[in-house]
């Protein structure tokens, strides 16, 4: 092997080691401090903001992704088992704000947010982002764990809330409400 080839080979190996080493770098935690315009503290308030209120089982967590603005989200694949409000159904992606960016080694954490756990069933209140292909669970909404699914005692309060949602001055129409063809947005967010 010529010296040039040896040097090239050494260079490739060194680059591979460097890339591999980068992915062992611990995440640097960044805590996001958000100022909230919308209050989601009660089922009525959350239903007044959300496109969809539904019960779903979390199947798996995916790698975090950034949207067109560079904001980081953690997607979860979920299976909807019951829809109380809106059109969410089947296998869809729900995202939480923040997450671990494997490339930049940033861990973006929202103060007070509760992380979803695969294998558990939750009640969600979300808005749909069709172009991103996901339903957004906002960082100030605490997912309600409902092990019993639609028959869980916690669900009855929500069943009532979706029939009498509470509006807030700061709640503006969602993309779904403004869309000429909302079904098309839902189709964009279907898995598969």
């Amino acid at each position: 092997m010529s010296m040039a080839k040896k040097l090239s080979a050494i260079g490739v190996v060194a680059a591979a080691v460097a890339v591999g080493a980068w992915f062992t770098v611990p995440y640097e935690t960044s805590v996001v401090h958000a100022t909230y315009a919308v209050d989601l503290d009660t089922p009525e308030l959350a239903a007044g903001w959300a496109d969809d209120v539904f019960i779903a089982a979390v199947d798996s967590q995916e790698s975090a992704e950034r949207d067109a603005d560079g904001l980081l989200y953690t997607p979860f694949r979920v299976t909807v088992t019951s829809t109380l409000q809106g059109k969410a159904g089947g296998d869809i992606r729900v995202v939480q704000e923040g997450g671990d960016d494997p490339v930049s080694r940033e861990r973006v954490v929202f103060d007070g947010a509760t992380a979803l756990e695969p294998g558990k069933t939750y009640l969600f209140a979300t808005r749909l982002s069709g172009p991103d292909g996901w339903h957004v669970l906002p960082s100030n909404f605490t997912p309600v764990e409902v092990p019993g699914g639609a028959t869980d005692p916690a669900v009855s309060r929500w069943t009532s809330a979706v029939t009498s949602p509470k509006s807030q001055d700061t709640v503006h129409p969602s993309d779904v409400e403004k869309a000429s063809d909302p079904a098309a947005l839902y189709r964009q967010a279907e898995v598969g």
């Binding site: 960044s30 996001v32 958000a34 315009a37 989601l40 704000e97 808005r127 749909l128 960082s139 993309d175």
Partner: peptide, 10 residues
């Protein structure tokens, strides 16, 4: 329109 914050520092 899909998030609930008006501003955030990160």
């Amino acid at each position: 329109s899909t998030v609930t914050w008006s501003g955030r520092w990160e």
